[in-house]
Computed example of a mutant assay.
Amino acid sequence: MTDETLPGTVPGGVETDLFPWWLVVLQGFVTLMLGLFLLMQPGMTLLVLVTFIGIYWFITGIFAIVSLVLDRTDLVWKAIIAVLGIIAGILVTTYPLYSTVLIATFFAILIAVWGILIGITSLARGVSGGGCTAAVLGILSIIIGIILLARPLLTAASLVLILGVFAVIGGVMAIVAGIRMRR
């Protein structure tokens, strides 16, 4: 008996007893809609998402202050989280346009640096006996990382569209999985 035929699973072995089928369909629908919004109105959708992130950071900072009052353990970390959360939340919600560009660009730069570091590691592994394939993939990763790093705004705009495509695909897959769970 494979995991697809076990009770309480859907293809891929995902356990379905944790969530009702309609909740999985609802999540899929919301993810699909987000993906479509990201593809049709990437700037506005990203602006709204970043504003929600700012609100979340602000609320996290407030909760950290409440946690400080109720529990004095990890005082320094809670204070740092509180201050940073409140400041970041205020800045992001006060300047949502700038924040959208900065946050998306920061993630693009982070991905580029990560690609370069992975490339260096793969190249070193390939040179030290890991094989020609690892070295070639390392060089490609370094080149792609440098290209992404050279154009972080273009990379940020591309990431929004890529995220939109993944959200559409993930949303459709969740809807299908939820419908299959019902049967």
Rank of each mutant, 00 (worst) to 15 (best):
W114N: 11
I81T: 09
W22N: 14
A64K: 03
I162E: 03
G131I: 14
W57Q: 13
T45N: 08
G115T: 00
V50L: 06
G115M: 12
A104P: 00
L70K: 15
G119D: 05
V101D: 12
T133G: 03
I62E: 00
V24L: 11
G12I: 05
A156R: 04
A79D: 00
G126I: 01
I111T: 07
L102A: 15
P20D: 15
D71F: 14
I103A: 08
R180K: 15
G89E: 09
I118R: 14
L26M: 12
T16A: 11
F58A: 13
L140Y: 13
L154D: 14
L39F: 12
L23M: 13
L32F: 15
L148K: 10
W114G: 02
I139R: 05
L163E: 03
R72W: 02
L84Y: 07
I90Y: 03
L18S: 13
F107N: 06
I86L: 05
Y95T: 11
F107C: 00
V50T: 08
R72F: 00
D3W: 15
V10C: 03
A134G: 02
V172A: 12
G130V: 08
I86N: 02
G138L: 03
L38N: 08
G126D: 07
G130M: 06
A134I: 01
M44P: 00
A82K: 08
A167G: 03
I162F: 13
C132S: 10
V160G: 03
V83N: 02
I62R: 02
L97S: 13
G119R: 04
T93W: 07
A135C: 05
L23H: 05
M173S: 04
L70F: 12
G8A: 11
L46T: 12
R182H: 14
L102K: 02
F37R: 13
T16V: 15
I111N: 08
D71M: 10
L84K: 06
D17I: 11
A88R: 10
V25H: 01
A157I: 09
V172F: 07
A167S: 15
L46W: 04
F63R: 02
L102D: 09
L6R: 15
L6Q: 14
L159C: 01
L140Q: 04
L18N: 11
F63N: 02
Y56E: 11
F19Q: 08
F63P: 00
G35R: 13
A150N: 08
V176F: 00
F29K: 05
G54C: 04
F52D: 00
V10Q: 06
R151E: 11
F106C: 04
G126N: 04
G61D: 02
Y98K: 14
T121I: 05
I62L: 11
I62Q: 01
V25F: 00
L38A: 14
G13R: 12
V76Q: 09
L137T: 07
T94C: 06
L161I: 01
L163C: 06
I118L: 13
W77Y: 12
T16K: 05
L23P: 02
L75Y: 07
W22L: 04
T2E: 12
P96H: 10
G129Y: 04
A156M: 06
I116G: 04
L153A: 07
L36W: 06
R72Q: 14
S141Y: 10
L110V: 10
I146G: 02
L137F: 10
P11H: 10
M44S: 08
F166W: 07
